[in-house]
Design a protein around this nucleic acid. Sequence first.
DNA 1: CTGACATTCTGCGTGCTACGCACTTTTGCG
DNA 2: CGCAAAAGTGCGTAGCACGCAGAATGTCAG
Lengths: 202, 202
Amino acid sequence: MGLRERKKLATRQALSWAAISLAVQRGLDNVRVEDIAAAAGVSPRTFNNYFASKQEAICSVTVDRAELVGDTLLARPADEPLAEALLAAMVAHYRPAGELDRQWVTATQLIYASPALRGEAMRAAVATEERLAAAVARRCGLDVERDMFPMVVATVATGAARTGVRHWMRSGTTEPITDVIAAAIRMALAGMENSGGDHGQR
Amino acid sequence: MGLRERKKLATRQALSWAAISLAVQRGLDNVRVEDIAAAAGVSPRTFNNYFASKQEAICSVTVDRAELVGDTLLARPADEPLAEALLAAMVAHYRPAGELDRQWVTATQLIYASPALRGEAMRAAVATEERLAAAVARRCGLDVERDMFPMVVATVATGAARTGVRHWMRSGTTEPITDVIAAAIRMALAGMENSGGDHGQR
DNA sequence: CTGACATTCTGCGTGCTACGCACTTTTGCG
DNA sequence: CGCAAAAGTGCGTAGCACGCAGAATGTCAG
């Protein structure tokens, strides 16, 4: 990767981080694009070369990760059962959340707190679903256009993951987030045979 | 319902319809709020008393329906298995789509065609999920805050329904939309035991 | 019917935003 | 070194969300 690309990425991250940081401090709509640009040491106009809105800047942390989920699934061994591969691929997404990724946690909390951000985040979720669906289809030898199955699976998996994250945030448990997400996905993939009974994960 | 409320509802629908109609004709961003207001015979300022954006106006058709999904579930007989009740409640949502609801179909097509609208629609989906989750929790005697199960179920169901709708739109099949949605939800609720095999619903 | 009250509609003003365009600065490479 | 490509910048414009205060309209008791 040349200097050029690295610098571009750095700017992008600086903007994103500035947006998150300021939004946490003052609340999203007490932050102007101008402020974000200033905090990132860049002109206001440049902000819009990277992001179309404050919301997008904040959610990019989530989005960037989601880009890879399809590839991760395809990288799993082909003989692994779909459910397991899916679980592993989704969880891999959130792996680093041990300590390093405080920023992601902050951003996510912020997102869940504001309707405007949730909308933006959901938009991103659609992209994830689509990539994942494509990967599932490829893995199963199906056609996304003709069969609903891949899309349904993708929707279920991402939805469950989202719920897991949210639950983890809300409950403030000390349990690793990956475990919670895994539990949510398993719950979803297991179907409803045991509906209404005990489902662990209090 | 007094004249007051009826008139208000009428205005809301007129605005929504005008927004959809104009967006279909010219494309969303060749429509100004001013135009929508004019088409609905109301001042531009009034538009913003009803909706915060064009997107919201267009998606309101979908949102308004979603408001009721929780109630519908709670209205199902208590001894019915959860999966069936859920299926029935979700499908009931889309029932009239026989002929009358051309408007809803138009709006939905529009929504799927534009990223901006999809974002808005997803925001609405969150609201649906939450209502549905609350209803599921109540039905199962669980606590939404503590147990992930209701939220997972709600997410899965709404996600599957969304996928069903989308599939129906894309494929242009003559099959009733309710059947497609039902199939998608069943697929999701059934779990993944048969993953990779034939799943009907081509 | 009438008058007082509540609610909705409206016009105006303001601050912010997204983005096209033309121009400068920086970077990469032969 | 020198030049093309790409990123950053400043300016201008059209549009949007929304607060506020007053006019218009519906509501209801007496």
